[in-house]
């Protein structure tokens, strides 16, 4: 017994904190690597035009995004050079829009379904043909609230 007492008196009970930063760094790197940023993989060129009469989209969960633009360099072999529609993270045609909208709609509370907005993120160099087709498809599936995504123009 006396042996134990003696030992307790001698030792300092401090934990070394020198390695703490390293541990935190490892955590940081772990999260940085594993976190998937929302729609990180844009497959189409997408620089939206500038405008002044902008409205802010409030609730992000009530918004679905439709990207239109020419495919990026690395996808040109797969998707061609003509402007394409991207839904989620893959190329799609206008025929896929109803299903895409329905998939989003079922996730939303019924009372809020009327507030769903489609954000059209269209590249400024796209011609209106494909945009009109997408608009017609949206109208056909009764998704009438549309937001033409644009950047703030400095006046």
């Amino acid at each position: 017994m006396s042996k134990f007492n003696k030992k307790r008196g001698k030792s300092k009970p401090e934990v070394s904190t020198a390695s703490l930063p390293d541990i935190i760094f490892m955590l940081l790197f772990f999260f940085m690597v594993t976190t998937v940023l929302r729609d990180a993989s844009l497959k189409v060129q997408n620089s939206t035009p500038q405008a002044t009469e902008l409205t802010k989209l409030e609730k992000k969960s009530l918004v679905n995004y439709l990207y239109i633009g020419a495919p990026k360099e690395e996808f040109k072999a797969e998707a061609g050079t003509k402007p394409r529609l991207q839904l989620g993270d893959k190329f799609a045609s206008t025929a896929d829009i109803p299903l895409f909208l329905e998939n989003h709609r079922v996730k939303i509370d019924e009372r809020q379904r009327g507030l769903i907005t489609s954000s059209l993120r269209v590249d400024r160099n796209v011609t209106m043909g494909i945009v009109s087709d997408v608009k017609t498809a949206l109208r056909k599936s009764n998704q009438l609230k549309v937001n033409y995504s644009a950047k703030k123009k400095a006046e």
Binding site: L20, P21, I24, F25, L27, L28, F31, M32, T35, L37, R38, T48, A51, E53, L54, T55, K56, L57, K60, V63, T117, S119, L120, K135, T136, L138, R139, K140, N142, L144, K145, V146, N147, Y148, S149, A150, K151, K152
Partner: peptide, 30 residues
Amino acid sequence: ADIAFLLLIFFLVTTTIVEDKGILVRLPPW
């Protein structure tokens, strides 16, 4: 301090600041 800084950096990195702005339009029904 280090921990706080790291948290800060973490959130800075993961937060996407998307300009969710645009011209709101109501399409006519089909």
